[in-house]
Design a protein around this nucleic acid. Sequence first.
RNA 1: GCGGCUAUGGCGGAAUUGGUAGACGCAACGGUUUUAGGUACCGUCGGGCAACCGUGGGGGUUCGAGUCCCUCUAGCCGCACCA
Length: 852
Amino acid sequence: MARYNPKETEPKWRQAWTDADSFRAVADPARPKYYVLEMFPYPSGRLHMGHVRNYAMGDVIARFKRARGFSVLHPMGWDAFGLPAENAAMERGVDPKGWTYDNIARMRAELKELGLSIDWSREFATCDVEYYGKQQSWFLDLLARGLVYRKESLVNWDPVDQTVLANEQVVDGRGWRSGAVVEKRKLNQWSMRITDYADQLTDDLATLDRWPEKVRVMQENWIGRSKGLKLKFHFADDRPEGLEVYTTRPDTLYGASFVGIAADHPLAVEVAARDPKAAAYVAECRKGAATEAEIETAEKTGYDTGLTVKHPFDSTWDLPVWIANFVLMDYGTGAIFACPAHDQRDLDFCRKYGLPVKPVVLPPGKEPGTFEITDEAYTGPGTVYNSNGLDGLSIEAAKAQAIQWIEAQGDGEGATVFRLRDWGVSRQRAWGCPIPVVHCETDGVVPVPKDQLPVAHPADIEFGKSGNALERHPTWKHTTCPKCGGPATRETDTLDTFVDSSWYFARFANPDAAEPISKADADYWLPVDQYIGGIEHAVLHLLYARFVTKALADEGQLSVREPFAGLFTQGMVTHETYRRQNGDWVEPGAVEVVAEGAARSARLIDGGEPVTIGDIEKMSKSKKNTVAPEEIFDVYGVDAARLFVLSDSPAERDVQWTSGGVQGSWRFVNRVWDEFDSQPEATSAAEPDPDLRRATHKLVKQVTEAIDTFRFNSGIARLYEFLNLLKANPAKDAAPAVLAARQEALSAFARLIAPFTPHLAEECWGRIGGSGMVVQAEWPAFDPALTEDAVKVLPVQVNGKRRGEITAPAGAEPADVEKIVLADADVVARLEGLTIRKIIVVKDRIVNIVAA
RNA sequence: GCGGCUAUGGCGGAAUUGGUAGACGCAACGGUUUUAGGUACCGUCGGGCAACCGUGGGGGUUCGAGUCCCUCUAGCCGCACCA
């Protein structure tokens, strides 16, 4: 059997594609466009199996769409700013810029080895000054528009690393890197007004019908739109201003027991100023619970301020005002009214402090006299009662009525409240996009004029110490005010790296454009037709990109209002874990796994020490359960590796890497090559064998549909199946009809495997004398009439149990099928002693005889 | 607590969307070739001697259910004192 040699063929074909410039994206108005994009990588320095799977998926789609006549854009870039480069600088004393570009060079080479159909002419990194300078340009546009602002806000401050940390970088109250206890600090921070778009970002989710439901739900929850009432309670004493609360349950106002305010509420601060006990309670609350688990179990506590407010519908009814630890200052108005009967937290609180509990919603089927609240609040449907004018109304009607009354009284109005907060984009880090403003003593914050962009990093930036190297630089920040010409200092904060990735897809439309986004090119290419990436970006990156797209569309810089028409979230690559007796993790390459029947055990190859086989987990350095792609490429070639990560699991689920699995893919590669290699050069002019011919057309249909629906594993299974069929119809000593059918089959097969194993496909295509390269060939077409078998095997059931089968011509009428069935000896034997009640014939599918 | 998803052989998973459950692959077992093999090739492979039984458990709809409905259980993911 001819051995396939990927070491020879794979580099050869990659060079051929490069020479032919096969993957250059051309905005051809005569052809439909297709923009395929995988989330661009952080240049960590090495390619891992997760990259292989992610980019292989995108490549399947890109090659498939290209073959189907689309003008395809499939670009690649680098999400290159960020903390790891600065950490490397501190740990190893290297320059972040040099470190990053070295990593990019290494990873580019590795990615190119994957044989991806990428238009490399569009490549850029977000740390290229040509890129972040354009980002500064549109940042200034949003600033001018009021979508960017600066305000003092509470941030997580790491006192050792001297920087702000994102919430995700705070683990159990400590900085993830330094281990220092994180402080809350008030700092002037730049923010983007994403909350201005909260409604649109929610509403437009409904248009994203090619996004996973899961991601849409996550975004919807994250934005957290709720509709209710903002209502001002008047104080019982003669304080002029009222106390504003937010509620989604105005229907339960008659069930109110108290009004609760957050410990940080201005009123609480005021009370604390004159009441030492209140001050002590507020201080206690501020310490607060740090972890989620603590919040979960934290007891509801409160402090009675002694103040009272009047019930909005009954001026003789006074409600006490409590400071309560479960009321949050940064949601709604920082104050609530509590209805214990229909809210569990309020109930817990009222039971603890002996406050009244009055039900005002009667569950269906309950009597007013007998319904009682014990230790569980009732939040279900029902009819409002105990509520004067609202009595008898449904919850929805009572909400509307209460809001109407409050509005008529001038005490408030129906309001929409979001959980989404504005996006804080300031980072005290040098390795990021500088924020292009200066601070002038006379003119305050002044934007850098666009003709002075980019605001670039200084060349002699000194990393290697904690804190912001831009701040520390001796000269960089000193400049002159563009307005008055007087002395000024540059802003030394840089932008969150999520800003960098919030528009890169639009820059790919034309990475050389003078303006940030070439409108003409973006109008052709955008939106991204298929975006592929990890579920971990379900909220942050995907939400920011949607926001920036809308903001830039309102600026007139873009036409689309949604960046990604289709989204696919792929699963991870996992591997078994192994541990030595002392608990140390061991890499798979050092372990030999032995199977005795179903039982498996493992030991070190070197020395034979037994090792424990652990859980299957995401490949990670810390658990040492990684397999280096280049080692796999070296043994089996790129195609076998690509094939395996796509074939063994559905694309949205995790795939478990196994050495046996990739060997199976490698076997397939060889068997395919052997099949092509055994086909004689001479062509057969005979009429093709009809069965093989039909199987070929069926295969084309199945693989086409599988790729279209991201069911790569199923498509590959069909290819394996078909290869088995070819083996059963070998070229050796074949009849001319079979040889002719094989010609058609192999021609289709080479093109069908091309998205998955592109190098092998080229080699096979060349072997059977295909014209040009597979990358230039059209996707095979199928004749629908030939995708169905001419003769159908129909299972025959008696009372729903399979009792035999018959063959009938495709499309046979039920009456004719019945005749065949009733003439079948096996079936007749089964029916002995029974009376046939009914015969159900589903055309081309099944026969069921109902008999008793 | 709220929201979402999942459950099929020893394992990953298929199943024309209500019509032959277990395709395809891995592992295992048996064989052939080989000086040898952790190679390659061929074969067997849900359970049961069988009748039959089998898609997490229980119920239902239907001529027919892995697929639809109700209910329970287990696991995974996201959010979380959000008023």
